[in-house]
């Protein structure tokens, strides 16, 4: 059961296609888990459809249609060709998600075994993720999403671990992919969506029984309170797992 959802305003901006790639990634990830918000987005898209119907009608040339039929002819002849080809070779097609599942099995990373398809596509081979240790209980791996405004990462909080109290310099979206964590405001489980704004500080705790993996999207770096001291802590050696 999901208890934490994106706001109505955020879902409206998303349904309209106004949100940036990184924010949209966080919302799409939540939607993967949340049928309630999927229904909400569908309903909002109907509003888009209604406005679309009343868009200004702008002239389109006849050549546009001719050129479309030419493209369709081309696509259909290619499809016929590919169809013959695939019958001949009869090889299964590789999709990003099946790849991800296979590699996960091989590398024994159960926490990353069932990622939403869009995250699996970004991650590719989970064993290639470069995890950077920020504290004994917190690891971060950056993801490249093709935009320059936000930092997009997977974070892993070790079972029972605590993340140092931090403030948010900008907007931060978090979606729980696996496990659970809690802060003073509540417990966040798989699929839950959290939006922190500047000035809101919290210190998340992973539940004791399992690692917690989250997607985070932030448009400004977070500020750890007194964290520099912790970085110099001799316990901060690399810990696999």
């Amino acid at each position: 059961m999901i208890h934490h959802h994106p706001s109505t305003n955020l879902l409206a901006e998303y349904s309209a296609g106004a949100t940036g790639i990184a924010e949209s990634l966080a919302i799409a990830t939540h939607l993967h888990y949340c049928s309630e918000c999927r229904q909400q987005v569908k309903a909002m898209q109907q509003v888009g459809g209604n406005f679309f119907d009343s868009a200004e009608r702008l002239g389109v040339s006849d050549e546009a249609l001719t050129s479309l039929f030419e493209k369709i002819d081309l696509i259909e002849s290619q499809q016929r060709h590919e169809h013959c080809h695939s019958l001949a070779s009869a090889l299964p097609q590789n999709s990003a998600s099946t790849n991800a599942i296979i590699t996960n099995k091989r590398h024994h990373q159960p926490a990353l075994a069932s990622l939403p398809p869009v995250i699996a596509k970004l991650v590719g081979n989970p064993s290639k993720l470069r995890w950077k240790m920020l504290s004994p209980s917190l690891k971060v791996a950056h993801l490249k999403t093709g935009q320059t405004r936000c930092e997009v990462s997977l974070i892993k909080i070790r079972a029972g671990g605590k993340v140092m109290e931090h403030d948010h310099g900008g907007n931060e979206f978090t979606v729980v992919l696996n496990g659970a964590f809690s802060d003073a405001n509540g417990v966040y489980k798989e699929g839950d969506f959290l939006h922190k704004v500047p000035g809101e500080s919290h210190s998340p705790n992973a539940t004791a029984n399992a690692n917690c993996v989250c997607l985070t999207v932030s448009d400004a770096p977070i500020k750890f309170t007194g964290f520099i001291g912790k970085l110099l802590n001799p316990f901060l050696t690399l810990q696999p797992g």
């Binding site: 998303y14 296609g17 790639i21 949209s24 990634l25 799409a28 939607l31 999927r38 569908k42 398809p117 869009v118 596509k121 970004l122 490249k144 999403t145 093709g146 935009q147 320059t148």
Partner: peptide
């Protein structure tokens, strides 16, 4: 910038 994701990955168009 290279684009690892397409809009269809982020905004579903299929029911």
């Amino acid at each position: 910038i290279s684009q690892p994701l397409e809009s269809d990955d982020l905004w579903a168009t299929e029911d």
